[in-house]
């Protein structure tokens, strides 16, 4: 085993408790991120399901001519944010209403004229389902003279978007706080390791070891701590996921890329924290 790796492992043996603490600290900071990731992912899935149904419906005046409507349909269908367009005639609307609202069936039959308007139902492409785009489209549709009214689920749409933003922000803040704590613990682990090896370090300098060589064991130590912390965080997140799934509601596990990203984040955190600390503490030897 090369020198640096051997030294990194001997640091674990020298201060196992501190190493464990570093791993746990990283694990917790990433667990927070992981739990929010799990939540965010499931909200995301739910929203995507709901968003599939994001629809803008334009109700047409009875006076609208077929030619006018035909031109408008082509124009609307050509808009980049529109994925699907469906024209519902007065007759179709009545048929649907009688099917879905069977208790009013007789009422509808009694009427001389069909009271329901024809409509154009527009579905949006993914990525164009945010409140701003939806509102803009609604305004465009409302501008046609033969459009009487435009409807879309504007309130809940906005609420979901706000919710998602808040969840992301909270995860960032709490995860960040835990990450800072982890960095501080790793910093003191490095300090202990540097102190324990100060004789070796001064002899390394004496005989002409390069700074990079002297630092490497400490960086490796941070890197390994980070990988372990990341792995433990994934394990804990998975545990939480199982508990929620079994005891509360069926939820989905986060994608593999997110898991890898989590371990990677732990590794980066461990590495960066020890790089910072080693720079500082080696100066004192």
């Amino acid at each position: 085993m090369p020198y640096a790796l051997r030294e990194a492992f001997s640091a674990f043996r020298r201060a196992p408790l501190l190493t464990a603490l570093s791993v746990v600290a990283i694990a917790f900071s990433l667990l927070v991120v992981g739990l929010f990731g799990l939540t965010a992912y499931n909200i995301h899935l739910a929203i995507t399901g709901v968003e599939e149904r994001v629809e803008v419906v334009a109700y047409l005046r009875d006076s609208a001519s077929e030619a006018q409507v035909g031109i408008a349909r082509e124009e609307i269908a050509a808009m980049p944010e529109v994925s699907e367009l469906r024209y519902v005639s007065k007759t179709e609307a009545l048929a649907t209403a009688m099917r879905e609202l069977s208790e009013f069936r007789d009422l509808f039959l009694d009427m001389e004229a069909n009271p329901l308007p024809a409509s154009i139902e527009v579905r949006l492409r993914p990525g164009s389902r945010d409140p701003t785009t939806v509102e803009a489209l609604a305004a465009t549709l409302a501008a046609y003279p033969f459009v009487e009214d435009v409807r879309f689920g504007q309130e809940w749409l906005e609420r979901i978007f706000v919710l998602r933003r808040i969840a992301g922000g909270v995860a960032l803040v709490i995860g960040g706080a835990f990450a800072a704590v982890a960095a501080i613990i790793i910093g003191s682990a490095v300090r202990v390791a540097v102190f324990a090896r100060r004789d070796e370090i001064s002899i390394m300098r004496l005989v002409g070891a390069t700074d990079g060589f002297i630092r490497l064991p400490f960086l490796l130590e941070g890197l390994i701590t980070g990988i372990l912390g990341g792995a433990v965080a994934v394990g804990l997140t998975f545990l939480a996921y199982r508990i929620v799934s079994v005891a509360l509601i069926e939820v989905a596990w986060i994608p593999v890329e997110w898991v890898l990203l989590g371990v990677l984040a732990g590794t980066a955190l461990g590495f960066a924290a020890s790089a910072l600390a080693v720079r500082r503490h080696l100066r004192a030897v």
Binding site: D199, S202, I203, R205, L206, V207, G208, T210, D211
Partner: peptide, 22 residues
């Protein structure tokens, strides 16, 4: 600073108190 290791490799140093790793 980064030249120092190269210089040190051309010097051998011995101290009164040995400075061996225990």
């Amino acid at each position: 600073p980064r030249d120092i290791p190269q210089l040190r490799r051309r010097l051998g140093v011995v101290f009164q108190e040995y400075r061996l790793l225990r």
